[in-house]
Design a protein around this nucleic acid. Sequence first.
DNA 1: ATCAAAAACTAATAAGCGTTAGTTTTGTAT
DNA 2: ATACAAAACTAACGCTTATTAGTTTTTGAT
Lengths: 196, 196
Amino acid sequence: MAKIKPAKNSSKKDVIITKAATLFRTRGFNATSMREIAAAVGVEAPSLYNHIGSKSELLQAVCFKVADEFTTQLTAAENNKQDTLAKIETVIRFHIKMMLDEFDEVYVANRDWKHLPEPFLNNFLQQRRSYEKRLAALIEEGIKKKELKNINPYVAVLTMLSAVRGLELWQRHKKNISIQTLEDDMVNHLLNGMKK
Amino acid sequence: MAKIKPAKNSSKKDVIITKAATLFRTRGFNATSMREIAAAVGVEAPSLYNHIGSKSELLQAVCFKVADEFTTQLTAAENNKQDTLAKIETVIRFHIKMMLDEFDEVYVANRDWKHLPEPFLNNFLQQRRSYEKRLAALIEEGIKKKELKNINPYVAVLTMLSAVRGLELWQRHKKNISIQTLEDDMVNHLLNGMKK
DNA sequence: ATCAAAAACTAATAAGCGTTAGTTTTGTAT
DNA sequence: ATACAAAACTAACGCTTATTAGTTTTTGAT
């Protein structure tokens, strides 16, 4: 009889991906060896290949998991029955949440996507461009409805996405700022910068 | 007689560092081989060692050149006889300028500093922490003088530095936005977010 | 207890890495 | 022209890498 995947909602493959994400984040994708990942999992390197296909597959898993979550959430925000400003706030807060809850994965997806092999690289970049376009469209809508200042939508997208990404830096000051202060101050800083 | 270094203000070592910076930026430090750098310079890999000591020395050159420029300029801004808000604007505009003028170097310093060997890694991080502290102090001063809103200074620093760093993303949209629009919209977005 | 599948192990491979050694070419000052 | 140093070259080293092959151990259902 075929064995059924462990009832637990985390297979060994998932464990490997999670450990890999942490190592990729701290040491970088190229600087992380399969032997290191294996050691973190508690196994010898070749054993990993009973569960995964290649090192690059691990990077793909991390990058596309993150990309899909962002895409899904943006769709939800777009379909909200709120004014545009509230939609944008929802998106920003989701970015902050992701940065805190899935730090390793988001960090790696942001920095190491360049090492994806084709055709995944192209796929990833297309998804990202589409995300930025939809976010810019949201801002443009806000400008038309006079909820927002007349700034270039792409500059606003760029400023927002980057500022949130900067939570990477924040990890160093963790102890001194509460998460709530951080989130609210950042959201306000970003929104007040474009509010009319 | 000892030969004097070429009168030109760019030695061969400088050429190597510049080419390396470009490759580091596009492919990442670890993913860039000495053979690739050599090819970009138009030479075989071992020949590089007539001019430089090691691959890591190239990374050091890039990282500390950038760090020193930022530190120097911050000192200048601090000593300006302007109000605090203007000082901060000066700093932001310098960051944007650096991002445009020395893109490869700044990008590499931002992303690949982790691969600096000790004691350079510690040195670099100390310089960076000090920079962030001084910038936060500037913002705190602005708050005390009631030029700025009462936000957490570190959150503001984090938001500013990251947003500017996000010009990395902008490279893709180069054609559609003028540099002036970009700079002004971003500065306004950031400053209006904290102005009282 | 048995047996098959899953997953671990050891050993090894081919390729690529930064770097060194040793030699030849190039450039310049006399 | 000669001589010397700078800088190029080829060849090769020692090491690490991801991955494969082949074998043994572990696991779980009957």
